[in-house]
Design a protein around this nucleic acid. Structure first.
Length: 263
DNA sequence: ACATTGACCTGAGAGC
DNA sequence: TGCTCTCAGGTCAATG
């Protein structure tokens, strides 16, 4: 689930539910997901604190601690946040949770344990340490910079879009959606794309991510003409009604319309 | 330097 | 019902 639009939706959810709530205690259910600090130290640092604000870079979510430092959350291939009353059972696959003074808790869930929990002094520095490129929605990432990034690459456009070191935030699902909106086949090599194509790709990346955030990353709420609700076996193109093609690109299953996304 | 592949985890769903 | 197999919205190390 957790690509840029999903994580942005989690961020807003965190803001709406958990900001400025006093953390009575923190419980680490899966210490193996905690990196760079021991689970015990993490618990001690979080206890008594409150989250003052949040940020996001690509698929990483950052929660600013009231005093100093940031809690870092990455969700892997599955997961999210869940805010619920303490007397309710702990949500499945909860790997970390914060118990608040108000009788609620915020649970961080990551079913397959491919996520990551950490602390950092600064989100920008953390993103740099992890080798992330600019966030796909970064205002400073204009068409010109996007072109420069693409010009460095030669592989298939889908693999390039998903490379977090180049641009952060796009994964398998949203790469398919962006390419569908741009009318570009996922197997197209970036060095074979003209200026026109790169420009369309850039516009599609921006508008698709914005629109899916507005839909709260929920396929049911997405506008007409989006691929996501049809992205499955026997799915049909929302534009022309043709059966979608399914191929493996850069190691990931990809769906596209053979007519609307010509080779 | 860049692209591709397999391993890491757990669980859901299909097929028998 | 219960078993096996396949697949999954990510990332990193190892390989080509």
């Amino acid at each position: 689930m957790p690509e840029l639009p999903d994580v942005e939706t989690f961020r807003r959810y965190l803001d709406a539910t958990s900001l400025h709530q006093r953390i009575r205690r923190a419980v680490v259910e899966a210490p193996e997901l905690v990196h760079g600090v021991s689970a015990r130290r993490l618990r001690r640092i979080l206890a008594g604190q409150a989250l003052a604000s949040s940020e996001r870079h690509g698929k990483y979510l950052f929660g600013a601690l009231e005093s100093d430092g940031w809690l870092v959350l990455h969700f892997g291939m599955t997961g999210g946040l869940a805010y619920s009353k303490l007397d309710k059972p702990l949500p499945r696959h909860t790997r970390l949770w914060l118990e608040f003074d108000n009788g609620y808790r915020l649970a961080y869930r990551s079913q397959r344990k491919l996520g990551r929990i950490a602390l950092t002094g600064d989100p920008r520095a953390y993103a740099a340490e992890r080798g992330l490129g600019p966030d796909a929605l970064d205002p400073e990432l204009d068409l010109e910079r996007f072109r420069a990034l693409m010009a460095k690459r030669r592989g298939k456009v889908k693999g390039v879009l998903m490379d977090q070191g180049l641009i952060a935030g796009i994964g398998n699902i949203y790469a398919d959606e962006v390419l569908f909106q741009a009318g570009i086949r996922p197997t197209t090599r970036v060095d074979a794309m003209g200026d026109e194509d790169v420009s369309r790709l850039y516009d599609a990346m921006r508008s698709t991510l914005q629109a899916t955030i507005e839909a709260q990353a929920d396929p049911e709420q997405m506008p007409e003409g989006f691929l996501l609700p049809q992205r499955h076996q026997d799915g049909r193109c929302p534009r022309c009604g043709r059966a979608l093609a399914r191929v493996r690109v850069s190691g990931r299953t990809s769906y596209y319309c053979p007519r609307c996304q010509p080779a």
